[in-house]
């Protein structure tokens, strides 16, 4: 049904999406909890900076990443010289680009979920003999689960659609960083590319729709509790 090339594009996209969710989740949960449960000076500014990738043009985000983490970038140079790691123009760069762009969605969902949990439930758990970590895992995380799932699915879906930051920071390298949107764009730039592009468009639409339906289903199922 799918050609080998299409299959490669699809699996690369899924791989980028899954790894993107996997690396953002710990940060999303930690920061979501921190923002939901703590008040400090400059919280609004801090929160706004975290949400910036949601409103910045993705190309700008990608360019900032390139400045920071490119081979000549401020951090990229250190990574390259000290550890021999090159991020830019690899599929890890595509992961990082979509993680940064999708992070506000994840953070928002988790933070709202934690804010909705009565802190008194956590207090009750403490008086029952649970350490703060045990309370966090068995009460806070468990009750925030619908939010965490929704955040993860939205981030995954956003990653599948990521174009601007990826093409700027990871470039458009066939088999390495050419995810679904980049492949569609590439086909559309070729004289006879409209048909293969259309096939990818349909695949892309189906996956995104699936992710959204799954997130809705998870919300309904888990929020019954």
């Amino acid at each position: 049904m799918l050609t080998t090339e299409e299959w490669d594009i699809l699996t690369l996209s899924l791989r980028v999406g899954l790894l993107c969710v996997a690396i953002s989740l710990p940060f999303g949960i930690a920061l979501g909890w921190f923002l939901a449960r703590h008040h400090f000076r400059g919280k609004i500014l801090f929160d706004s900076i975290l949400h910036l990738p949601l409103v910045l043009p993705p190309v700008v985000t990608g360019y900032v990443l390139l400045i920071l983490l490119g081979r000549r970038g401020i951090l990229g140079e250190i990574l390259n010289d000290w550890f021999g790691i090159q991020l830019a123009f690899t599929w890890y760069a595509a992961v990082l680009a979509s993680a940064v762009v999708g992070f506000p969605l994840l953070l928002r969902a988790i933070r709202l979920a934690i804010e909705n949990i009565d802190p008194k439930l956590e207090h009750a758990a403490r008086t029952l003999g649970a350490s703060p970590l045990h309370v966090f895992i068995t009460v806070t995380m468990r009750l925030a689960m619908p939010g965490i799932w929704v955040g993860a699915l939205l981030t995954f879906a956003r990653s599948l659609g990521e174009f601007g930051a990826t093409i700027t920071f990871a470039a458009n390298i066939a088999g390495e960083t050419r995810t679904l949107p980049l492949a569609i764009y590439t086909f559309l730039n070729q004289p006879s590319g409209e048909d293969p592009a259309m096939r990818l468009v349909i695949i892309s639409a189906l996956i995104s729709l699936g992710a959204l339906i799954a997130s809705e289903w998870v919300t309904r199922r888990l929020s019954k509790v």
Binding site: L121, A124, R126, T127, A130, R142, L143, V225
Partner: peptide, 20 residues
């Protein structure tokens, strides 16, 4: 001492049962 080390059984005004 942290609450979990005090061995005090606390019954709150609202039951505060774990809904899950």
């Amino acid at each position: 001492l942290a609450p979990e080390k005090r061995c005090m059984g606390y019954v709150f005004q609202n039951d505060l049962l774990f809904p899950h």
